[in-house]
Each structure stands twice: as C-alpha cells, then as structure tokens.
Computed example of a mutant assay.
Amino acid sequence: MTEPHIRPARHVDEAALAELDRDVWSPLHAVQPRPEPPFAPFFDPGNPPAHHLVAELDGTLAGYLRLARPTRLDCNAHVRQIRGLAVAHRARGRGIARALLRAAAEESRRQGARRLTLRVLGHNTPARELYESQGFTVEGVLPGEFLLGGEYVDDVLMGRSLTE
C-alpha cells in the first residue's frame, strides 16, 4: 500500500481543498449547515495556506489538516490547535488521518509548541477513537454546546503533550 505524502498547503491547492471539504461534509462533525453556492473561499486571512497540511496519495490530494494557534495571546503561544481534519472518501482506511496527525505533532514541535489540542463533537465516536489512538485524552466537555439536527451535542476538548 502506498504511503501518503504530507506537505504544506499551497495557494494552488485551494480549489481541490474546497471541493474535498464540501464532499466530506457530514452532520457527524459539522456545526455549520451543508455548504451551498456561492461557496466561500477555502483560504482566508484567518486560515491561510500556511495553516494547512495536505496529504497526497498517488499524486492526488487525499486529505488535509488545519493547524493554528488557538489565540493570539503570547501566554499560550506554546499551544497549537487542530481546527479541521478531512480525508477523501476514496482514501479512507489508508492511514491518511493518522499520517496527518503525526505530521501536525511534528510541525507543532518544530514551531516550538508543547501542547496540541482539538475539539470534537461528542457523538463523533470514530474521530474520538482516532484521536485517542494518537495520544489525545479528553480534557473537558461542554455539555449540550451545540443544537444539531434537533439534538443537543457535547463539545469535547481533547489534548496531548508534545514533550513526552
């Protein structure tokens, strides 16, 4: 099986990333309604290409991870937050998400971070299991934080140390 190639995103990836993001939209992980035309740009001033890692499989974009500082505060500049992770349906089960998570940890360390955090919806069991398999633990729960499809859903805060 071919290993995914992980690299920083480039401006030329925008159309493919936007299409991937729309294709994998699901109520299992989305707090926003399904995207409808006209579509917003994938990259914007708060989410530039530099905040994204992309996975290629056999030369084709197969996934991405959005990684950024959680705030602009200097007092938590040692933390990076995963703000999105998507894998194309055709590439699932091939280790893309795990490769992106490992690359995010490496990139965070390279940037001097000591912690890596994320938020995941409480009903997204597959994602929670994936994150736990990569060393993340539940650090907090915001009960019923979102009303999605008529159901209240928890916002689960997870994190891991990058110094161990």
Rank of each mutant, 00 (worst) to 15 (best):
V141Q: 07
R160D: 02
T125R: 11
E139Q: 04
I96G: 08
G159A: 14
A97C: 12
E129Q: 15
G93E: 00
E145L: 10
F146E: 02
S133P: 01
Y152G: 09
A103M: 06
G93I: 00
M158S: 13
P126W: 05
T163P: 11
I96R: 03
Y131G: 06
F146S: 04
T137K: 02
D154N: 08
Y131V: 08
D155N: 10
L162V: 13
V120L: 03
A103N: 11
R109F: 01
G95Q: 00
R119K: 06
S161E: 15
E106F: 11
L162E: 02
E145N: 04
G149K: 03
E132Q: 14
A127M: 09
G135Y: 15
D154P: 06
A103F: 00
R119N: 14
T163G: 06
E145R: 08
E139R: 08
R109K: 15
R115W: 10
L130R: 10
E129V: 14
S161C: 14
G93A: 01
V138Q: 07
L130G: 07
S161P: 12
E129Y: 10
D155E: 08
R128P: 05
T137W: 01
Q134D: 08
S108M: 00
G135A: 11
L162W: 04
T117P: 00
H123K: 06
A99C: 14
R128I: 15
P126C: 10
Y152M: 00
L118E: 03
L157K: 13
L130K: 06
L142G: 09
L101N: 11
F146C: 02
L148W: 02
Y152I: 05
G144V: 04
I96Q: 03
F136R: 00
V138T: 13
P126N: 10
Y131P: 07
R110L: 09
F146G: 07
S108R: 09
R114C: 13
Q111C: 12
V120Y: 04
H123A: 06
E106H: 12
